Computed example of a mutant assay.
Amino acid sequence: MHLLLILMLIFTAAAEQHVSVVTVRVGDEVILPCNKVTEGRNNCDRTSWSFISSTSATLFEAGKIQIKTADKSDRLNVTVNCSLVIKKVIIKDVGQYSCRQLTSEPNSVYYLSVIHSEYFHVSC
């Protein structure tokens, strides 16, 4: 069921616009760039980042991190050029991330895939 939901999210977003798939390992840091950011904006105040998985949430809006859950808020940051930084990635971070300027359609859409590193451990 969970896999079906993920596939539906990918194909729905893909039908509307280009979705970049980003794959990282648990514990890594990932930077998701926000394209077409208007120059001269203070604190990315007209930029919004949202997250869709089994639920949806606004992560960043009006120049501030909006999500208050302990497993995300302390690991999120937005750079000066409005890129979203996720530190110490966990499995719960899997999903679709969208960046938009508040006056436009999403201009950057990513599907974040997370690999648990034990699956790739090679013993000699």
Rank of each mutant, 00 (worst) to 15 (best):
I115R: 11
A15S: 14
A13M: 12
C44T: 03
S54T: 15
S20Y: 06
D45A: 09
E105W: 08
L4I: 13
L84A: 00
T69F: 09
K87S: 05
K87E: 04
I52K: 15
A57V: 07
V37H: 03
R46Q: 15
P33G: 06
S54V: 15
F51M: 07
L102M: 08
I6F: 10
M1S: 10
V78P: 01
I65C: 08
I65S: 08
S104L: 09
V19Y: 00
S113H: 12
K68W: 07
G27F: 01
S117V: 13
S113D: 08
V85Y: 01
E61K: 12
L7N: 10
R25Y: 04
R25G: 02
K36Y: 10
M8D: 09
V94S: 06
Y111E: 06
K36C: 08
Y111I: 10
Q101A: 06
S56Q: 10
E16K: 09
S113E: 09
N107Q: 07
A70G: 14
S113K: 07
Q17W: 07
H2C: 15
I31Y: 02
H121V: 14
I10E: 03
A62Y: 07
T103H: 06
H121L: 15
D28M: 02
Q96V: 10
I6M: 12
S113N: 13
H121F: 08
S20G: 05
L84P: 00
F120P: 04
S83C: 05
V26M: 06
C99D: 00
V30Y: 00
I31L: 11
I65A: 05
G63R: 05
T55G: 11
R41T: 12
Q66H: 15
S117K: 09
A62K: 10
I6H: 09
V22S: 02
T103E: 05
A15H: 15
E118S: 15
I67A: 09
N81H: 07
G63Q: 09
